[in-house]
């Protein structure tokens, strides 16, 4: 009996030891690139369908904009705005680096390009580029773990990301990455000059289809005086088949 107890105790002790030391071991062994890969595994997917709402906190009032997005890979995305009445029926199509907007009141399909892509979407703290930005971090950034930190009781690595090429929305990013879940809890986005442009807090993480995904993003444009924009994911489905016609200009008028 005592021998059995001793064995059980040593087994429990072993499990506790493994638990206690597993995270630091991971931290020591994982490179910044591997951490980024784990983040991409959580956040990126072949395709996804997202029902979301965006709450824009402006100085005068708060507005809630409801939308449904179909996305495939990094380059294909189609968003339809469902509410409020003024935005209802507005659609956006992204194909590669091009973005078109359809508004039912004008029955026109308008291409948004150049500096307009950096403009705010519907008065929010998100730009069209932010909406289009669904790139895998590993593909476009070099990363370096600089230190560790605690954010809202969760242990984090601080990753400094620098763009590999100039063709990205933000030249530098600082990520607070949850050591356990491999998801960013906060991102600070910088211009090449080093100016902090935006801060994004990601929380309400949920386990969805075997991955951790934030149900709430809080965007704050650091150059604006507003109170920020909440982007709330009501539902999300990963790797669902999406018919090809969705990602066509014809679909904008349907």
């Amino acid at each position: 009996m005592n021998v059995f107890r001793l064995k059980k105790l040593s087994l429990s002790f072993g499990i506790i030891l493994v638990f206690f030391f597993s995270i630091p071991i991971q931290a020591q062994t994982l490179s910044a690139v591997e951490i980024l890969q784990r983040i991409d595994q959580n956040l990126s997917s072949e395709s996804r369908v997202v029902n979301s709402k965006m709450i824009v906190h402006s100085r005068r009032t708060d507005r809630t904009i409801v939308s449904k997005t179909h996305a495939k890979g990094e380059d294909h995305s189609f968003t339809e705005y469902l509410a409020p009445a003024r935005e209802k029926g507005t659609k956006m199509l992204k194909l590669g680096k091009k973005l078109w907007i359809y508004s039912p009141s004008t029955d026109r399909i308008i291409q948004i390009s150049g500096h307009m892509l950096r403009q705010s979407v519907m008065g929010s703290d998100l730009s069209y580029e932010d909406l289009m930005d669904d790139k895998k971090l590993t593909t476009h950034y070099r990363a370096q773990v600089t230190r560790t930190d605690t954010l809202e009781t969760r242990m984090c690595w601080i990753l400094e990301l620098t763009a590999k090429e100039a063709d990205v929305s933000y030249y530098k990013r600082t990520l607070w990455v949850d050591k356990e879940r491999f998801v960013p809890l906060r991102q600070e986005l910088f211009a090449k000059s080093g100016t902090l442009l935006k801060r994004v807090d990601m929380n309400n993480y949920e386990r969805i289809q075997g991955r951790w995904y934030p149900k709430k993003f809080i965007f704050k444009d650091m150059l604006k005086t507003g109170k920020g924009t909440e982007f709330i994911v009501n539902s999300i489905r990963f790797n669902v088949p999406i018919p090809g016609y969705i990602f066509s200009k014809a679909a904008l008028r349907r």
Binding site: S58, P84, I101, S105, V121, M122, G123
Partner: peptide
């Protein structure tokens, strides 16, 4: 022509 701008409340304004 189509005018594209922002409303007083930040919504998208589009008008021919």
């Amino acid at each position: 022509v189509t005018f594209i701008g922002s409303t007083m409340f930040g919504s998208m304004a589009m008008q021919n």
